[in-house]
Amino acid sequence: MANPLTLYIPIKQDPETQLKAKLGYDNFVSSVQAGLDTSNIVHYARLALIPNLDGDAILAICLITTFDGPMNPYLKYFWNNGALQQVFTGLADIALNPPSPPVTDLTGFENFINDNNLNNPDDLYNAYDQTVLQIRAKFPPSA
C-alpha cells in the first residue's frame, strides 16, 4: 500500500536562499534519480516552489511523493544515500525555521521529516494497489 509524504517548508526570503531554492529545484530530478531508482519503493517525487502572494519570490518548498510501505524504517536509506541526504539537508538549511539542533544525524533527519510532513493518513487517493516492484516486474524498462 502506498503512503504519502508531503513536506512543506517555508524558506528564508533573502536573495541567497532564493537562489539556492531555485538551483535545488532545477537540479532536483537529476539529484534524486539514481537513489530513488535504487530504492524500489518510490512511485514518484516532485519538488514544487510555492510563490508568495505577490508572485515575485519563493515562499516555500513542497516535496510531494508517494512510496510503498512504511516511511520511518526507510528514512535510514535516504539518509545513508549521499545524494539524497544532500537534497534533504539542503532543504533544512534554507528553511525559514531551521531545525534545532541542525540536522546532523538520522535522529535529526527523522524529526525534520516528521515535523514537516503535512499528510493525513486518509488524504491519499490511489488508482491502483500495485507496488513499484510489481509494476516494474510487469513493465520492465525497455532495453
Binding site: 516511511m71 538520522l106 527523522e110 524529526n111 521529516i113 516528521n114
Partner: peptide, 15 residues
Amino acid sequence: NFPSEFKAGPSSQGS
C-alpha cells in the same frame, strides 16, 4: 530530540 518513532510511540500512525 529523540527519534520520532520513539517519541510518537508504537500506536502512532507511523509505527
